[in-house]
Amino acid sequence: MRVTLLGTGDTTGTPTVGCDCDTCETARERGIERTRFSVHIENECIGESLLIDFSPDFRYQFLRDDVSLPDAAIVTHIHFDHLDGLGNVFRVFDSLDVYAANETDPKTDKSVAETVRADYHYLEPIDVYPTTPLEPVRICGFDVTLVPVEHPPLLCYGVAIEDPVTGAKLSLSGDTSYNVPADSREVLADPDLLLADGIVPAHLCEYHPIGGRHENDAGVPRTFGTKHMTREGALELADELNAERTRLVHLAHYYPADEAFEEPLAIDGEQYVL
């Protein structure tokens, strides 16, 4: 299993357009990027690959990192920074299987799968496969399981990907608060690599309109607002999941420049063989 981090940034990416903060300036000076979130997973045994989420930066990411076009893909939720790159399928793919959860979202009255099918009805190459969370499905030779997480107001999912031949396991927290349900944690547990949403450091919660949530025993917030984990929350989740290695993703340019590029914060283009 070869894992390439195509996009490790949040909804605006780093550097952010029009921003001259110290973090964005440092990223420009060092040639570092965090484009919108996407992960490419290659099954080298069978020569197929799987994409997690369609970043709006799809075209640029694939050209920059020179990875193969996917044979199948997963959409974790319908926020634009995870979905809108699907339009790049047009005139690029002959066919593409897209998997997404089949649970009806009370906010939209549609499942993620139904939203993808409706919004991209004009894309003849795609076939959308409604997928039941917490039930593994075989995709590109991997056993893939969508797991519910907490990312209000929309339904959102993390993903566990296991190679039944080698035993390698990749877990993605998805866009989520620290309040990941117990049954989802059980599926995500014991990965060789965990990609965890850690949008900002906990000390920035004081600047959020509603502050932080899910404080630990030391009073450190593990959730920034309601939708994303803090760095500290993501690392605590990693410990609880017994992750062998952890990279923090979905990172905002609000990290102070002296913290923004420290371990274990990921940057685009990182590659891991599990």
Rank of each mutant, 00 (worst) to 15 (best):
G219M: 06
G198M: 05
H203D: 14
F224S: 12
P221A: 01
D197F: 08
P209F: 12
T223N: 11
G219N: 00
H203N: 10
K227A: 14
R222V: 00
T226L: 13
L188V: 08
D192G: 13
Y207G: 01
G212H: 09
D217Y: 00
L195M: 02
P201D: 01
D190K: 12
A189Q: 09
D192I: 00
V220T: 15
A189W: 07
G212T: 08
G211F: 02
D217G: 11
G212I: 07
E215I: 09
E186F: 04
A189R: 15
T226K: 12
G212Q: 06
K227C: 10
P191I: 06
C205G: 04
E186H: 11
H203F: 15
K227M: 15
G211T: 02
H214Y: 15
V200E: 13
E215T: 14
T226F: 12
L194D: 13
R213V: 00
Y207K: 09
D192Q: 08
V220F: 06
H208S: 05
P221Y: 05
H203E: 13
V220S: 08
V200H: 02
P209C: 07
H208P: 06
V187F: 03
E186N: 10
N216L: 02
P191M: 00
Y207H: 10
L195G: 09
I210W: 09
D192S: 11
V200Y: 01
F224D: 00
D217Q: 09
A202S: 15
P209R: 06
G198Q: 06
R213Y: 03
R213Q: 12
A218F: 06
N216V: 03
R185K: 15
A189V: 02
I199P: 00
V220W: 10
F224P: 05
R222W: 11
G198A: 13
D217W: 02
G219L: 06
R185D: 07
L195N: 08
K227E: 15
I199Y: 03
I199R: 11
E206F: 06
V220M: 08
H203Y: 11
E206P: 03
G211K: 02
K227W: 08
V187E: 11
Y207W: 07
P221D: 10
A202C: 03
E206K: 15
V187A: 09
G225Y: 07
L194K: 03
E186I: 04
I199S: 14
D217P: 01
G198L: 04
G212S: 09
G212N: 09
Y207F: 13
G211A: 05
A202D: 11
L194A: 15
V187K: 13
H208N: 15
D192A: 04
A189Y: 00
L188H: 10
L204T: 13
H214A: 13
I199H: 04
E186G: 00
E215A: 14
R213C: 04
N216T: 02
R213L: 05
P221N: 05
L193I: 04
L194G: 10
R222D: 00
L188F: 07
G225T: 07
D190S: 13
I199V: 14
E186Y: 05
R222T: 01
A189M: 08
N216R: 05
E206D: 15
T223M: 09
L188Q: 07
D197R: 05
A202G: 05
P221I: 00
A218K: 10
P191V: 01
P201H: 09
I199G: 03
H203Q: 11
L193H: 10
G212V: 01
T226M: 13
L188N: 07
T223Y: 05
L195R: 07
